[in-house]
Design a protein around this nucleic acid. Structure first.
Lengths: 204, 204
DNA sequence: TAGATTGTTAATCGATTAACAATC
DNA sequence: TAGATTGTTAATCGATTAACAATC
């Protein structure tokens, strides 16, 4: 049974937060404390954990380590997935830093770029390939997720190519709208649109 | 009357798209064509424009130039707003590039960073200041929007300071959750969470 | 008139939250 | 028992979309 989108978002955040919390050596946590740290409603926490199928205790709250494990099992589906970064400008570099410095269930195993300066070098241990290696590397390394940033090449062409090679999830950080076949999941974020929303709602 | 969030997002995208479309010298456009280019439902377009108070013609569709102007007036509230970037790592640089290369109603007029390499230089014409200038520059340049990226300093302290100086909209690109007083609008994007969502839903 | 399009309402769907029973 | 918390249902709210009248 598939979890709602927002529940998945929050579960991922509960886990991130609890990973740090557990060093406080408190073995249990109440929904209201978890909620306060994430600035959300405690009912959200309890409902999300109910959907996860995780139970707490009326007197002690939720077992921190068990909850971390339970979320990990559900979200990681047992094993980490391989991802790649396409386009190695500032956005691509920012993304790589985040994945290099933090434990996440996704492992970035390849970078693709057109610039001669980057190609054939490694960054945080991740090799950068030229664009014409896209198909080969994605297939060889069994990469299923792609983080798409502004690249010099035509995005539609890149998109068709990577989907043909086995990419089933794309995070599109460019301003270009992509037309995807069924079976490929898309997540998008457009900085420009976010700022315009901000400008509008901050003065309402 | 305040527009729904999603309508504001789409209006901003209609405008971006039409700015390019108008060079095709087609003075009018139908809702279905606009919708197809943005991969959305034509009803969305018509409903959004209804909420904007913009009318089309049954035979010709919508006047492109008039629609661009009408969205601009609504979203820009008459004048561009000043924004700043706090933290000038890769994320901050990626953002600056986007705002330098594209016309948007938001003008980035200051960058703040701790690194001696960046401070006192200008990037795409935008000056970079040291963090201790935050309060002064925000007040002097009448900056109301802030784009927050990972910085060395404590984010809670920065947040309290900039709100006291007049910031009313924050785009938080860090993984830290911010607690904001009423009257300050918040927009957030967390790359890690987005990738985890992608990993989960791409295999459902 | 027939066909295509706009404009608008009502139905549907998902996310949030109020309410409250059950439990410790 | 009283008080606090979990677990769950039902109500509410916002976003999407189906349906259709009005218009060219």
């Amino acid at each position: 049974m598939t979890l709602p989108e927002k529940t998945v978002e929050r579960l991922s955040q509960y886990r991130q937060l609890l990973m740090r919390y557990k060093y406080l050596d408190k073995p249990h946590i109440f929904s209201k404390d978890l909620a306060r740290m994430l600035r959300i409603n405690p009912v959200h926490v309890r409902r999300d954990l109910m959907l996860l199928g995780f139970s707490g205790s009326h007197s002690k709250g939720y077992d921190v380590q068990k909850l971390i494990d339970s979320i990990a099992i559900k979200l990681e589906c047992g094993a980490g997935k391989n991802g790649c970064i396409i386009g190695f400008g500032h956005t691509g570099r920012a993304a790589l830093e985040i994945f290099a410095e933090n434990f996440t269930p996704i492992k970035i195993v390849a970078i693709f770029d057109t610039s001669a300066k980057s190609v054939n070098n490694t960054f945080y241990g991740t090799p950068c390939y030229s664009m014409d290696k896209l198909a080969n590397v994605i297939e060889e390394k069994k990469i299923t997720l792609a983080l798409l940033t502004e690249a010099d090449e035509d995005l539609e062409t890149i998109k068709d190519l990577i989907i043909a090679c086995g990419i089933i999830g794309i995070l599109n950080l460019t301003h270009v709208k992509l037309d995807l076949p069924g079976g490929v999941y898309l997540e998008e974020f457009d900085l420009r649109t976010a700022m315009i929303k901000l400008a509008y709602f901050s003065t309402q």
